[in-house]
């Protein structure tokens, strides 16, 4: 009995280890190649760690390429999208959580449907719509498009956090002399900070990763986001592996940082939703 249990525990830990290695190995390899000097790249191709390391690829990418611009553009687009979406989703999530009104069913249905249909279908019409407004090749255009794409899921996420806050608190505030909106701003929003963090992080990561619409709507380096920049860089200089991977590591940093900060809130939000449903 005892040894059986020990064996089971061992198998459990081993399985976990396999998952961790599988999850991290590609990222490790990215890092490894990015710090391998060019002359060792081929001779030590399959070694786990180069005999010498260097940061010259990072220096080149930062100093001699358009990547700082891409990075800045992506930061602006993702940051602005995250803020816009979080504000809109807080409001709409609150409406879904706290009010019963006639159109509620239709609003939920609309938001669910937008999660179902192929976004590639919107590539052409959105391009046609934004182009006369001068919003193609512009960061503002990207922010508008990304915000719309992310609002539905963010609304459901925020709603599940609002649902976790007792209604008594608003009622107490309204009796204390607040309007519903003041109660929302001063009492409910501060209590939803974990939800706001989760939503910000989720949307930031999603906007940071988006490729197809960025490719379609942006041409030229000035307004290119990181994915577009990296992809053009790859197709132009497909032999400078060290530099490409250094750029890749840089692209990874903000998204991973955000994710590590918010991942526990994300599970929490989904659990709250699961318990309710």
């Amino acid at each position: 009995m005892r040894s059986g249990k020990l064996l089971l525990t061992g198998a459990h830990r081993l399985a976990i280890l396999v998952y961790v290695v599988f999850a991290l190995f590609p990222l490790f390899w990215l890092l490894k190649v990015s710090v391998t000097p060019n002359d060792l790249l081929y001779s030590e191709g399959v070694r786990m760690w180069p005999s010498r390391t260097t940061f010259e690829h990072f220096q080149f990418v930062i100093a001699h390429s358009a990547f700082p611009t891409f990075f800045k553009n992506s930061l602006i687009v993702s940051g602005a999208t995250a803020v816009v979406v979080t504000i809109l989703a807080s409001l709409s999530g609150y409406a879904l959580s706290r009010f019963t009104f006639r159109a509620k069913y239709w609003i939920v249905a609309l938001m669910l449907i937008t999660q179902m249909f192929p976004l590639v279908m919107l590539v052409a019409p959105i391009f046609k719509m934004l182009s006369p407004l001068g919003l193609t090749n512009s960061l503002t255009g990207l922010v508008i498009v990304y915000s719309a794409f992310n609002v539905p899921f963010a609304t459901f996420l925020m709603q599940s956090f609002f649902d976790g806050i007792p209604k008594d608190l608003e009622e107490a505030a309204m009796i204390d002399g607040a309007t519903q909106f003041v109660a929302f701003r001063q009492i409910i929003l501060p209590l939803t900070l974990p939800g706001i963090a989760a939503t910000l992080g989720f949307v930031f990561t999603a906007a940071w990763s988006e490729l197809l619409f960025a490719l379609m709507l942006i041409s030229g380096n000035d307004a290119a986001t990181f994915p577009v920049g990296l992809l053009t860089f790859v197709s132009k200089f497909s032999v400078d592996f060290g530099q490409m991977m250094a750029a890749g590591v840089l692209a990874l940093i903000p998204a991973c940082l955000f994710f590590l900060l918010i991942q526990r809130y994300l599970v929490q939000g989904l659990t709250a939703g699961a318990v309710k449903g």
């Binding site: 007792p166 008594d168 608190l169 009622e171 107490a172 309204m174 009796i175 204390d176 002399g177 607040a178 309007t179």
Partner: peptide, 15 residues
């Protein structure tokens, strides 16, 4: 609205 009635309330959950 509740805020204009000048009443105070103690809730079961304290709120």
């Amino acid at each position: 609205a509740p805020k204009d009635r000048d009443i105070a309330m103690v809730f079961q959950s304290y709120a």
